[in-house]
């Protein structure tokens, strides 16, 4: 073995870490340090409006969460929101991806349209649905009345259940494209021989779907489930603009409650404790995600 071949991997090591150094510095300074510091703040009584009362209180903020009605309610709203959004997203995204996977005139146009909601900032999404759902002048009321489906204009966002469901609808519209793209990428890798074989075996369209498409799509579907769960769990922009968490606390998700706690009540200690609960739950979900990627071999470098 020559000296050269022995030295080379070592040179690569040093070079690679040098190349990664700027990214690592930025990320550790702006993510790793803050997240550690946030845990420290979560163990303080720390309200900007009462600086004298600031002190270390250990896990008291976390203990208080167990009997914190606002927190428990927000957790419940978030969990429900994830379920509803996820259910609608998966069904719609799968259907749209199946349509886009066929050959037909106008497919390119439909694909471009599918990117439209993805490009829309969450705040604008909220504004848009606010004008559409409006009780007195909204387009939804206008459309349904003209179609003869409702007799008079409805106030969609004034009941708790209504506000919740319509917020979920707005969120689904915004996040749908992302799932569609992942599922479409999965669908396009299914070898057509599989379908041919199933057709030869006289499998009907439904059996081809359940026995070829779904098993093959299992992995992309899981990725969609995990990432959309995370998205819905942190949903903030659209809800903030559309309902502001109301009426009452019907659409106050955990992320919204956290921002209110910090921005309105300037309670940094409690806000950090909320944030850490969100982080813990998100981390649990991402461990599943990364495990999946590992299994599929996406992680080979």
């Amino acid at each position: 073995m020559s000296v050269l071949t022995e030295r080379r991997p070592l040179g690569d090591n040093a070079k690679a870490w040098a190349l990664n150094a700027p990214a690592i510095v930025v990320i550790s300074l702006l993510v790793a340090y803050p997240i550690g510091y946030s845990f420290y703040v979560s163990m303080q009584r720390n309200n900007l409006k009462r600086p004298r009362a600031k002190r270390f209180i250990g896990l008291d903020n976390y203990k208080a969460l167990l009997s914190d009605d606002a927190f428990l309610s927000a957790l419940k709203v978030s969990a429900l929101f994830v379920l509803v959004v996820l259910g609608m997203t998966v069904v719609l995204a799968l259907l749209l991806a199946l349509v886009l996977n066929e050959r037909f005139r106008g497919r390119g146009l439909l694909l471009s349209l599918a990117l439209l909601p993805w490009a829309m900032p969450g705040v604008v999404n909220g504004l848009m649905w606010r004008t559409i759902f409006d009780a007195k002048t909204g387009a939804l009321n206008g459309l349904l009345t003209q179609l003869g489906l409702i007799d008079s204009y409805q106030a969609w966002l004034t009941s708790g259940t209504g506000a919740f469901l319509f917020t979920a609808l707005a969120q689904v519209w915004n996040t749908l494209p992302f799932s569609v793209i992942i599922l479409l990428a999965g669908l396009s890798t299914i070898p057509s021989e599989l379908y041919d074989a199933a057709t030869v075996d006289r499998a009907g369209a439904f059996r081809r779907f359940t026995q070829v498409t779904i098993p093959w799509l299992l992995h992309p579907l899981l990725i969609v489930l995990i990432l959309e769960t995370m998205n819905a769990f942190r949903a903030f922009d659209t809800i903030y603009v559309l309902t502001g968490g109301g009426p009452g606390d019907a659409t106050t998700t955990i992320a919204l409650l956290d921002v209110q706690t910090v921005l309105t009540f300037t309670d940094f200690g409690l806000g950090s404790a909320y944030a850490w609960v969100i982080t813990a739950i998100t981390l649990l979900i991402s461990v599943g995600y990364i495990g999946l990627l590992y299994r599929k071999g996406n992680f080979e470098v």
């Binding site: 990664n20 990214a23 690592i24 990320i27 702006l30 993510v31 790793a32 340090y33 803050p34 997240i35 510091y37 946030s38 703040v41 995370m230 942190r234 903030f236 992320a255 956290d258 921002v259 910090v262 940094f268 806000g271 950090s272 909320y274 944030a275 850490w276 969100i278 982080t279 998100t282 981390l283 979900i285 991402s286 995600y289 990364i290 990627l293 992680f299 470098v301």
Partner: peptide
């Protein structure tokens, strides 16, 4: 390292906003 990069993507913004603001 690649895994750590991915993991930072998973950290919710809300978890770092308070220290980031103070910083």
């Amino acid at each position: 390292l690649l895994l750590l990069y991915l993991l930072t993507r998973m950290v919710p913004g809300i978890a770092i906003i308070i220290p980031f603001y103070l910083l």
